[in-house]
């Protein structure tokens, strides 16, 4: 075959060793470059290669939502996404929410409404809720419960989480965090 294969790891020999791929992301407003195996999950790239351990790997098959980040402004699960698939995208992780010691308004609502116990699910809860609140003004409690069913918590029983998201909704329209989309 003479075809030129973009991103090809082995154009001519299918038994050749698998080469690493280049991955470039804009994470929380900063351009980050890395190289990894094609099979590297985005959650592992964020945690292991970039040292951003706020994003948590839970079930690792797209059920629990703990690994949710904003990808080009939309909540997306990073355990069901290869890092190489996301190359070129803008990512916001939980580390991108607070400004120094100043919590993001949604984080403040979680704090005030006791919306976490162990905190393992909280990063995914926050990123799921930001996208939902950004795209749904004035949700009722049923809509909030349905939206937050995308993320699993094993401690709180959800009442605090639902109350926190309702409280954040009452603050008015939820902007996307800085760096979620191109300026």
């Amino acid at each position: 075959m003479s075809t030129v294969l973009p991103h090809s790891t082995s154009a001519t020999d299918i038994d050749a060793p698998i080469d690493e791929v280049a991955v470039s992301l804009i994470v929380n407003g900063k351009t980050r470059h890395g190289r990894c195996e094609p099979r590297r999950l985005l959650v592992d790239f964020l945690r292991e290669d970039l040292g951003l351990t706020g994003t948590h790997a839970g079930c690792e098959h797209g059920i629990c939502g703990a690994c949710t980040v904003l990808l080009d402004g939309q909540a997306s699960r990073t355990c069901t996404l290869l890092a190489v698939q996301a190359s070129g995208a803008r990512i916001v992780t939980v580390e991108g929410l607070a400004s120094g010691e100043q919590l993001h308004p949604l984080q403040q609502c979680f704090h005030e409404h006791h919306a976490l116990q162990c905190g393992f699910c909280t990063p995914g809860m926050l990123m799921t809720a930001i996208d939902f609140l950004h795209t749904h003004a004035n949700p009722d409690e049923g809509e909030v419960r349905e939206a937050m069913s995308a993320a699993v918590c094993r401690c709180t029983g959800y009442t605090g989480i639902v109350n926190a998201v309702m409280a954040a909704a009452a603050l008015g329209p939820m902007p996307l965090p800085a760096g979620a989309l191109p300026e």
């Binding site: 294969l5 973009p6 090809s8 790891t9 094609p38 099979r39 999950l41 690792e60 290869l82």
Partner: peptide
């Protein structure tokens, strides 16, 4: 739980 090794291609057409 991680994927097995595979070759990756992102063709343009």
């Amino acid at each position: 739980m991680k994927p097995p090794r595979f070759h990756y291609h992102a063709p343009g057409s």
